[in-house]
């Protein structure tokens, strides 16, 4: 939306059409989010009425058919699995993007990138199935029972690594060539160029990649359901089984009635809250960092 009144005396009809349609699309996108939240509120309203918000924190555990509705351990499950996956996947994703862009010979880089693109396209249920049949038994032999927080983290790492890698790669490709030429002319080694020039300029893009990966990990359901064990408890170590908010919905929704069903929508609302919290914290961190570096 650049052309308008500044460079023409009167806005053309095309501009108005564009403006209108762009506004409409923006409104639709915003409206959809609003509708989702409103729907979640509407469906979980019976739970808020009959159970009350505080009991979702204060009840001793989650036995919905016995009228006990604590969700905090599942919030922890979601948060820990996601955090673990992001901690593992981010360095791998970013380093492989750097490898692909700066170190790999062109032919290898192209094939490597295609392979990662393919990995990004694998449906989550396939990852879950592989996790259940291969990864979980391996972990079980090492430290029984097997389905655990760590298997969830590893599967999620595999799933979000391609996203982080591809977004990082795209932002690395946008580094102005002049910067690279200048640093070469100054005699920087490849690594010091990456460390002092490339990474600071692409920080935003890398951050976006991590954020996208994080959102995917938080929302992932099927794969996590298959490998995490789904026992409702706050894990005390990596080999404890956990249940995430998403797995809770998928496991029980088909058979839930009344307050139990509303409580499951409540866990959807909690998930929404966790996503909003994580994304806004991340945004706040990003703005602070931008400000500091701008000084």
């Amino acid at each position: 939306m650049i052309s308008f009144s500044s460079n023409t005396l009167s806005r053309s009809r095309g501009d108005f059409l564009l403006l209108g349609s762009v506004r409409l699309l923006a409104l639709t996108a915003g409206g959809l989010l609003f509708l989702v939240v409103a729907f979640l509120f509407h469906e979980s309203w019976p739970a808020l009425q009959n159970i009350g918000l505080s009991r979702f924190f204060s009840d001793p555990d989650w036995y919905p058919t016995e009228n006990s509705y604590q969700l905090t351990s599942m919030v922890w499950g979601s948060l820990l699995a996601t955090t673990g996956a992001v901690l593992f996947a981010s360095p791998f994703g970013i380093l492989s993007a750097l490898f692909c862009h700066f170190y790999a010979p062109p032919l290898l880089a192209r094939w490597y990138r295609r392979m990662v693109e393919l990995l990004a396209g694998i449906p989550s249920v396939v990852f879950g199935f592989w996790g259940l049949m291969v990864l979980v038994p391996i972990i079980g032999r090492w430290h029984p029972p097997g389905p655990s927080l760590i298997s969830g983290i590893l599967i999620l790492t595999l799933m979000i690594m391609p996203t982080i890698m591809l977004v990082s790669h795209a932002s690395l490709a946008h580094v102005p060539i002049a910067l690279i030429h200048t640093s070469s002319a100054l005699g920087f080694s490849r690594w010091s160029m990456i460390w002092h020039v490339i990474l600071p300029t692409t920080r935003m893009g890398l951050f976006t990649g991590i954020l996208l990966g994080l959102a995917r990990a938080l929302g992932e359901t099927m794969a996590v359901l298959m490998v995490c064990g789904n026992v409702v408890q706050t894990p005390s170590h990596l080999f404890d089984p956990v249940r995430t908010l998403t797995a809770n919905i998928a496991l029980e929704m088909a058979y839930a009635l009344g307050d139990h069903r509303a409580a499951l929508f409540m866990s959807g609302l909690f998930l929404m809250g966790v996503v909003a919290l994580v994304v806004s914290t991340a945004e706040a961190l990003r703005h602070r960092n931008t400000y500091v570096s701008a000084k």
Binding site: D61, E66, N230
Partner: peptide
């Protein structure tokens, strides 16, 4: 269900 000590659900 409360009596059961499950490792996997």
């Amino acid at each position: 269900n409360r009596d059961i000590h499950a490792h996997v659900v």
